[in-house]
């Protein structure tokens, strides 16, 4: 589904990604862990198509297409979803209408008919229940006045409604208390499917207690220096990153 090959990316004059390789297949859940400054957020931003990153080498293939050539909205319509680390507040733009516009843009892209208002509302209400969000969310502006936890739940709600093929979760667990973490994890687990891949980018392993990954990768200085199964995450939690770095240098 996703194949990243020797990806190099820079921001202004600073090279952040330096030869990153990663392959993700449908149905898989990957966790990408790494210390601060290792390039985690750059990776998620590059995949979602944010401006300001220069790709100097390498390629990203998504469903056999060149992902880097696509505008952010094209990527979204092709099924790439980024759950933001810091979801932005957009006063005056209704939360639920954005969701509806996004969903209908995707359906139109796939040649499907638009969902009518009643069906759409039913779908959103069902997903909101799962995310334990109350009715007032329907009326509010995008993330407007939401707490940190509410913003993260709203991201996962969007993911549940839009049903993307590739979900990239950027530090979705940061700033969540234990109850909110459980709700968010429930939403992520509900998204697991044979035709969907999930990439969780995270600093800590605590999200992985609730959402079990198939693969765990360590990102360091813009490259993946070690990959393993979920036991690697537990080992990182216990021993930190230093030993992996030394092992890779040896």
């Amino acid at each position: 589904m996703l194949k990243i090959d020797n990806l190099h990316a820079r921001v202004e004059d600073k090279e952040i990604l330096r030869g990153l390789n990663l392959e993700v297949k449908p149905g898989e859940v990957h966790a990408i862990m790494g210390p601060n400054g290792s390039g985690k957020s750059t990776l998620s931003n590059v995949l979602a198509g944010r401006d300001g990153y220069e790709i100097t080498a390498g390629s990203v293939r998504y469903l056999d297409k060149d992902l880097l050539e696509m505008a952010p909205e094209e990527r979204a319509r092709e099924g790439v979803f980024l759950a933001f680390q810091y979801p932005v507040e957009i006063p005056g733009v209704n939360n639920v209408y954005l969701l509806k516009a996004g969903l209908n843009a995707m359906r139109a892209h796939r040649g499907e008919e638009e969902l009518d208002a009643a069906d759409f509302l039913m779908l959103v209400r069902e997903k909101m229940k799962l995310m334990q969000m109350d009715e007032s969310f329907l009326k509010r502006g995008v993330n407007e006045g939401f707490s940190g936890g509410e913003k993260k739940r709203n991201e996962i709600l969007q993911m549940l409604v839009l049903e993307p093929k590739l979900c990239i979760l950027d530090e979705t667990d940061s700033g969540l208390d234990i109850d909110a973490l459980k709700v968010v994890s429930q939403g992520v687990n509900a998204s697991r499917a044979a035709d969907r891949a999930i990439v969780m980018i995270t600093h800590y392993q605590r999200l992985l207690n609730y959402v079990e990954p198939d693969f765990v990768h360590v990102l360091y200085q813009g490259r993946i220096i070690k990959s393993g199964d979920k036991s690697l995450a537990l080992e990182l939690e216990e021993r930190g990153y230093e030993w992996v770095v030394q092992e890779a240098a040896a």
Binding site: G49, D51, E73, F84, G92
Partner: peptide, 20 residues
Amino acid sequence: FYLRSRGVDADTARSLLIYA
């Protein structure tokens, strides 16, 4: 960027923010 990442095209996203 947030609006576009949800599938809204660039021109619509601009208009939307101006309107808001």
